[in-house]
C-alpha cells in the first residue's frame, strides 16, 4: 500500500470523525429546513434541490422565509449572499493550504465548504504538513456534512408534508438561528452588532420589498465595526 493511499485513508477518516459530534446540530437544522421548504412557495422539489445547489443552511432558511413573505428577488439574492459573505474569511484562511492541492480539488472542494468543515480543518492544519492528508481531511469532514445535510433535508420534506399549521413549526426557524447566534456573540462588539442588527430589523420590518432584514444586518455590521474601534 502506498504512503499516499495511507494518507488519503487516515485523512478521510479523521476528517469524518472530527465532524461526527457536530451532526447532532446539523440533523435537526436540516429537518427544520426540509419541513419549512416543503410547505413554502418553493415546494418540496425545488426546496430539496436548494440543499444541493446552495448547500448553506442559514442562507437557505432565510431565503425561503423571504420568498414566502413576498420579498423582491434582488433582495432575496442580496440577503442570502450577505449571510454567506463569511465564507470569504474561510476561503482566505484555507487558501495557503489548498494551494498545494491538484487543480480539480482546488475548484471542487470550495463547493462543500461549511462553517463546521472549515473549523475542524483549520485547527488540524496547524498540526500537519502533508497536502494529501490535508486534502482528504477536508474532504472527509465536508462530504460527511454534505451527505447528512441532504438526508436530513429529504427526511424533513417527507415529514413536512404531514405537519399541520397549528403546530407553529415556522417558529423552529428563529430557534435554529438562535442556536447559531448565541455562540457568535463572543465579545462586546459582537453583542452591539447583534442588538443594533436585531433592533433595526424590528423597526424596519414594514420596509418594502422585504428590505428590513438587509437594512438591519448592514446597520448591525456597521455598529459592530464602530464598537470594535471605540472599545479597544
Amino acid at each position: 500500500m502506498s504512503d499516499n493511499h495511507n494518507q488519503r485513508r487516515s485523512g478521510t477518516l479523521d476528517g469524518a470523525g472530527a465532524v461526527a459530534p457536530m451532526l447532532i446540530g446539523v440533523i435537526p437544522f436540516g429537518l427544520v429546513f426540509g419541513i419549512v421548504a416543503a410547505g413554502s412557495a418553493l415546494g418540496p422539489l425545488l426546496g430539496g434541490a436548494t440543499s444541493v445547489i446552495i448547500f448553506a443552511g442559514a442562507a437557505q432558511l432565510a431565503m425561503v422565509d423571504l420568498i414566502d413573505s413576498g420579498a423582491a428577488a434582488v433582495v432575496v439574492i442580496a440577503t442570502a449572499l450577505i449571510i454567506n459573505a463569511r465564507h470569504v474569511m474561510y476561503s482566505a484562511a484555507l487558501a495557503p493550504h489548498f494551494r498545494d492541492f491538484p487543480t480539480p480539488a482546488r475548484f471542487a472542494l470550495p463547493y462543500v465548504m461549511t462553517d463546521q468543515a472549515f473549523a475542524v480543518s483549520i485547527i488540524r492544519y496547524s498540526d500537519v504538513d502533508d497536502p494529501v492528508y490535508k486534502r482528504w481531511y477536508f474532504t472527509g469532514a465536508a462530504v460527511t456534512l454534505w451527505i447528512v445535510w441532504q438526508l436530513s433535508t429529504i427526511a424533513g420534506i417527507v415529514v413536512g408534508a404531514q405537519v399541520p399549521d397549528s403546530w407553529s413549526l415556522d417558529f423552529a426557524i428563529p430557534l435554529v438561528f438562535l442556536v447559531l447566534l448565541v455562540p457568535a456573540v463572543k465579545s462586546r462588539p459582537e453583542l452591539v452588532a447583534a442588538i443594533i442588527g436585531g433592533g433595526i430589523a424590528v423597526a424596519a420590518a414594514g420596509a418594502p420589498y422585504g428590505l428590513g432584514l438587509m437594512i438591519g444586518a448592514v446597520c448591525g455590521i456597521i455598529a459592530g465595526v464602530v464598537a470594535h474601534r471605540t472599545m479597544r
Partner: peptide
C-alpha cells in the same frame, strides 16, 4: 451576529 439577530 448582525445577520442572525436581524433574522431572529
Amino acid at each position: 451576529p448582525a445577520v442572525l439577530a436581524a433574522l431572529v
